[in-house]
Design a binder for these strands. Structure first.
Length: 150
DNA sequence: GCCAACGTTGGC
DNA sequence: GCCAACGTTGGC
């Protein structure tokens, strides 16, 4: 999951109530499908900092609630309000994630590009803008072997 | 600040 | 249903 740390960072997650947050505001259909259909309770989450000087993986989280309607779409006062999302048949979904740990130093995008096992990783492909992306088990294992987790 | 990538919108 | 225009994302 990608986040701009000046908006919401891994540190923000670590001090949030119950160290948990709802991943609201995703307004892209492909990412919506992941949130609604694919992401399961207990799934690991790589927390990625984007659009910042030090781009890369900043920490780990875990899914603690599976897809449910993103209620911020129903609130006209919310920045993520979307009048087309009908509460009876919601357009947008979110999951809840909980903090697990912070990396000992960001695992930079540059570093990720050097790892052969991550050649196909979605976030490394050009033009990949999705804010929620699947990670394969092979990619997960390769990333978890890095020294920043110890 | 630039600009490539790409999703969305809307005229036809 | 096509596609040009436009807006956003996000690395550089």
């Amino acid at each position: 999951m990608k986040s701009e740390p000046n908006v919401f960072s891994i540190d923000d997650l670590s001090v949030a109530a119950d160290q948990t947050t709802c991943w609201d505001g995703v307004r892209n259909y492909q990412a919506r499908n992941s949130l609604r259909d694919q992401i399961k309770l207990g799934d690991g989450v790589l927390f990625y900092h984007s659009n910042v000087e030090l781009i890369g993986i900043a920490g780990e989280a875990v899914v603690v609630r599976e897809g449910y309607p993103d209620y911020t779409a129903f609130d006209p006062k919310d920045v993520h309000f979307d009048p087309r999302s009908d509460p009876k048949s919601p357009t947008w979904y979110m999951v809840d994630i909980k903090f697990v740990r912070t990396c000992r130093g960001i695992i930079s995008l540059q570093r990720l590009r050097e790892i052969p096992a991550l050649k196909q990783m979605r976030v490394l492909q050009r033009g990949m803008r999705l804010s929620v992306q699947p990670v394969t088990s092979g990619e997960w294992r390769a990333i978890m072997m890095l020294p920043q987790w110890t």
